[in-house]
Nucleic acid binder design. Structure first.
Length: 492
RNA sequence: GGUUCCAUGGCCGAGCGGCUAGGCAGCGCUCUGCAAAAGCGUCUACAUCGGUUCGAAUCCGAUUGGAACCUCCA
């Protein structure tokens, strides 16, 4: 698409809690930042959902013709486990337990993260910055906030002064909290803390003697605070004010709230125009979470090697499953839901195959242009992929009817339909055609030979032999399909 | 305890005041030696109780049940 479609896209902005017309800061360009993973363990399916959701958003923006710069960080400097002075971060803990360098841990799980997302057919982001690669910039921002009087130093650590910031700003506006309530509701921490107020958060933290990852700073050896990297890297690559900031719902508070505060404290500007939050994937009705162990790893999902599943599922079928729910809704994961979705996916892919065989007629019995409009309005309405998919199935019905001579399309309409279906199915939703019918010439040679032998038996009315061939092949996972024009097969 | 969100047919899942999404399963049909596969058709639900309205799954209130966040997590 050469020119951007009329400005019809609206997105749900967490900041205003409403859908807003999407108008980029710079015409035709979109800056999008998404909070990436902390790489101290394998990604689980819940993590993947968020990134798949934003991959779809990235794809649609590009499809509309926007020039998108998609930045997604890798958090490779650990977040502290707790607030105490001898607190240790997750990467360090893992490194210590496995007797490895922290950066070995980081490398291992970064590779895993990339592998998994590639299997789900995610595009890589345009820039994937790391926290450890931006220590200098983080120190600089901490310094600026300190100079602006909105942070204070205690024992080599720098804390953000939330109360002071809140005098001229609203800390909590994104997550709908206000500081007075936070006061009364924050649990008192065990042991003494250097913080003036419990809701203050670290911009820079002094490293304890046992800490494995630390860097030199004006305040001594230490490491950056929990939230600083995203503020630094988003503004470095997208500017002081950019269009979209995304992440999982769980990051809304405190992470994103702190990001806003840091950015405003550092440069006085509201950093993000549209805050987008992807919802959680649940398992047994409870959120998937590394810390509680309620997770499903992609490996188990693909192989089916888990009591949760009856069989393995292809990544693209899982992606389709996720696309059948809206990105802002909680989605519960289950074998049955996934299996149902997989069948629907196969139906869609079958239709895409039939689509290639259609012949144009003189008239159309289906309004393709109106259908296309419906597809775009679904996506323009805050990326409503479930509605889009329902329209795709409507189109599949037409496709099958045309193949069956019960409906017809003109050449122009047929071309338009093919183009639009391909755009939405493969480009926007990012699905992959995984049919492996003719994957191996040798396999089809063998199966076609068996089909021939079976048909000979059928001609002789030797049903026991013909049925044996059919059933044994089925056991192996090869499905024979008797149609009007002979027998074909598909491999499960 | 506080903040926010959700409750839809056998299952999953859209819907944002009237025009009864879609998928899966079931049922019927076409095809077939019988099946399977595939296709077509069909199945009319909105937690409970009130209220607003000519009209409510959709708005308001209450009740019940569930989730997320408030502590690292996508």
């Amino acid at each position: 698409m050469t020119s951007i479609k009329e400005n019809k896209l609206s997105v749900y902005n967490s900041l205003s809690r409403s859908k807003e017309l999407f108008v980029p800061v710079v015409k035709d360009h979109v800056g999008m930042y998404v909070c990436g993973p902390t790489v101290y363990s394998n990604v689980h399916l819940g993590n993947a959902r968020t990134f798949i959701s934003f991959d779809m958003i990235y794809r649609y923006l590009k499809h509309l013709g926007y020039k998108v710069r998609y930045v997604r960080n890798i958090t490779d400097a650990g977040h502290l486990e707790d607030d105490s002075d001898d607190g240790e971060d997750k990467i360090s803990i893992k490194a210590r337990l496995e007797k490895l360098e922290p950066m070995q841990i980081v490398q291992q799980y970064t590779v895993d993260f990339h592998n998994v997302l590639r299997l789900f057919n995610n595009y890589p982001p345009d820039i994937e910055p790391t926290a450890t690669g931006h220590i200098v910039e983080q120190i600089k921002m901490a310094k600026t906030i300190l100079e602006n009087g909105l942070a204070y130093e205690v024992n080599g650590s720098i804390y953000f002064d939330v109360e002071k910031y809140n005098k001229d700003n609203h800390y909590g506006k994104l997550s709908g909290r206000n500081i007075d309530e936070l006061h009364s509701n924050t649990r008192t921490l065990e042991g003494q803390s250097d913080k003036k107020n419990p809701q203050d958060f670290a911009l820079w933290k002094k490293a304890s003697p046992t800490h494995l990852q630390f860097w030199d700073s004006p305040w001594g050896d230490g490491f950056p605070g929990w939230h600083l990297e995203c503020s630094v890297m988003s503004t470095k690559y997208l500017g002081d004010q950019f269009d979209i900031h995304g992440g999982g719902m769980d990051l809304k508070f405190p992470h994103h709230e702190c990001e806003i505060a840091q950015n405003k404290a550092a440069n006085g500007k509201e950093p993000v125009k549209y805050w987008l939050h992807a919802n959680m994937l649940t398992l047994n009705g409870k959120r998937m979470s590394k810390s509680t162990g309620n997770t499903l790893n992609p490996d188990e999902l693909f192989s089916g090697d888990t009591p949760l599943l009856e069989k393995g599922f292809h990544p693209t079928a899982v992606r389709f499953f996720m696309m059948q729910a809206h990105y802002r809704s909680v989605l519960d994961f289950s074998n049955d839901a996934l299996a149902a979705s997989e069948k629907g996916f196969q139906r869609l892919m079958n239709g895409m195959k039939v689509l290639k065989t259609l012949e144009a007629k003189k008239t159309s019995t289906f309004d393709v242009k109106e259908w296309i409009e419906k597809c775009y309005s679904a996506m323009d309405d805050d990326f409503n992929t479930p509605i889009l998919i329902s329209h795709l199935f409507d189109a599949m019905k037409i496709v099958n009817q045309v193949a069956d001579n019960k409906a017809s399309l003109t050449k122009d309409d047929l071309e338009l339909l093919i183009k639009t279906l391909n755009d939405f199915v493969f480009e926007v939703l990012g699905l992959e055609d995984i049919s492996i019918d003719n994957s191996s010439d040798k396999l089809s040679g063998v199966v076609n030979m068996l089909i021939q032998m079976r048909n000979d038996a059928r001609n002789d009315k030797n049903w026991s032999l013909s049925d044996e061939i059919r059933d044994k092949l089925k056991d192996i996972g090869i499905q024979l399909k008797d149609g009007k024009d002979g027998t074909s097969f598909s491999v499960e």
